[in-house]
Structure formats: structure tokens, C-alpha cells
Simulated scan of single mutants.
Amino acid sequence: MVSVSPASSAPSAEVDRFWRWRGFRICYRQSGETGPAVVLVHGFGASIGHWRDNIPALARSCRVYALDLLGFGKSHKPTPGLVVDYTFETWGDLLADFCRDIVGEAAFLVGNSIGCIVVMQTATTHPEWVRGVVQLNCSLRLLHDKRPATQSWFKRMGAPLLQNLLGIKPVGDFFFTQLATPKTVRNILLQAYKRQERVTEELIELLIEPAKDPRASDVFVAFTRYSQGPLPEELLERLTCPTLVVWGAEDPWEPLELARDFENYSAVDRFVVLEGVGHCPQDEAPEEVNGILSEWILDLVPLSATDEKSSL
């Protein structure tokens, strides 16, 4: 089931559309009428708006879709555990069904941060719906249960303690309210973004607005306590589609020196480093990222072939 609000005859990046997935409302936007299908998947705590400077540019040569994952943005935020589990397997199924029901064909999947894990999960469990994968500063999942050897003693002891404390609802709710303020969000962004002029009031507002949902705290706590699921290298080993990796060299959370190992996997077609860019290249350096993505996708799928397919 698809409902659109407000009504529009032409696909527009500014129109919020809604699709029902397993009874839950999923928000998405689309733009562009010809070319290969591209689906954009945000990172933790973000939403469709994080692609605001990418959708119009990519839509010149591609049919572009961006969605709010279940639990984020304007999508439904069902109670964790009781109604749904917020795992990469859940989001992978969601993304594959989105390609089937809304896109209507296999697509190039582009992710940022944890969105990279989501698109790789989709590509490994539902390869028939994925033509290629783009990773923008993939989450390395450095606090995963399988990585004790790479963690300091403080992290090995402190992370589980904090996760257990957050599981106490009043504590989790209080912690979330302290984070979901303009001042705190600004400080986090200034740490994540090397190009700090990109940290604008517009960006802060688009990240804070979904946090006003009464269930946003529950989703935040559920994922913060999630240290299981796939590691990126486990998914990379299973990928069979071409993969582009783009990395902001100044990422304080996902170190470039660790990400370099991605180049050793056969699925990785190209590894691009962006100097002077942090954790969110698509928003910090949109012109560079848009050009890299468009060139790579159209090299794989010549425009003449996609135009012919779109007209069928």
C-alpha cells in the first residue's frame, strides 16, 4: 500500500510519500524519471533529510529514492522487542521489500555509517534486488561483542555497564533527553564533521525533529544496546555485487587506517579517500560525492541502456 501526501503527479525530492511494510508506515522520497534506480540509506540517528544535497544532483541521471528506516525519521517507531527487533536483518528485509514494491527492480544501494551495514545485509540476503553497493564511511562496529581484542579495558568494561544501565527505562529516557538538544547535537556534529561550516541550524533541526516522537527514546536505547549482528567484513566476504567505498579521511569514529582493509575484498571495485572530510561525506562534500557516485554507477550501467529500460 502506498499513500502520498501531498499529492503530486511528478516525482519530487520534497514530497514525503508513505508505504506500508508489515503494517508499519515507512516514509520515503523519490526524484528523477530516467536512469538506474538508486536507493539512499541514512545512518544512526539520521533520516531522509541527510541526503538533501544529494537527491537533486543524482536525479539528473538516476531515479533516486531515499527512505527513513523503521524507527527513524518519519517512519513508524514500534516498541522494540515486543513488536519488532531493530536489527540489520530486519532493515535488510525492509530494504529488499522496498526495492520490490516501490522501486520495482534491482537498485544501487548507497549507505552512510550503519546504513552501509544495512545495504550490505540486503545485498547478501536478497541479492536479486541489488545491482551494486556504495559505502560512505561504513560503521566498523568497533564495540561489537566479537571485537574484545580491539577494545581498551575501559571500553570492554564500560560499554556493557552503560548498555545495561540504559536498559532501565527511566535511565534510558533521561540519557536520551540529554542528547536530543540542539547544543548536544551541535557538539556531536562538530566532532563528526571536519568541514564544520556544514553544521548548520537546518542540519541540527532535521536531526532533532524526529527525536520528538514519544518512542524515539526506546529505539535509540534498543540500538545503542545492540552489539550483535553482522560485522562489515563478514558481509564483505559474502558480497557478489560491485562495491564502491568512499571514506572521509578525518572520520574520528571510523578510522581510515582500519577501513583500508576493505580494499582486500574481491567485491570492492574502487576505494576513494576524501581528504579533509569526516564521518558524513554525502553532507560534508556533496559535490564531490555526487560526482563520484554518478560516474561509478553510470560506468556500470550506461545511460543509453537505462533509458531504454526505463521506457519499457
Rank of each mutant, 00 (worst) to 15 (best):
R22A: 14
Q282F: 07
D85M: 07
R260P: 01
G43S: 04
E284C: 09
T240I: 01
D269I: 00
I114V: 15
Y193R: 06
I208K: 12
E209G: 01
E254D: 15
I114L: 12
G111D: 10
P232H: 10
T181W: 04
L136H: 03
R156P: 03
N264C: 05
F175I: 10
G92T: 08
G32F: 05
T184P: 00
Y65Q: 07
F175A: 15
V246S: 03
C99L: 01
F223T: 15
A96R: 06
V134E: 09
T122G: 08
L256W: 09
E128H: 13
L58P: 10
V199F: 04
L67N: 11
D173H: 13
S139D: 15
P148R: 05
C241I: 08
F220H: 11
Q151T: 03
S304H: 13
A267T: 12
E308Q: 11
D85T: 12
L58M: 13
L67G: 13
I114G: 03
L206T: 15
H76G: 15
M157I: 06
L109A: 02
Y226I: 06
P56D: 11
G92K: 06
P78N: 05
E287N: 07
A57L: 11
G43T: 08
M1G: 14
M1Q: 14
R238Q: 15
V15D: 12
S9L: 11
G132K: 07
G92E: 13
T200F: 08
P148E: 08
E128C: 02
A106T: 03
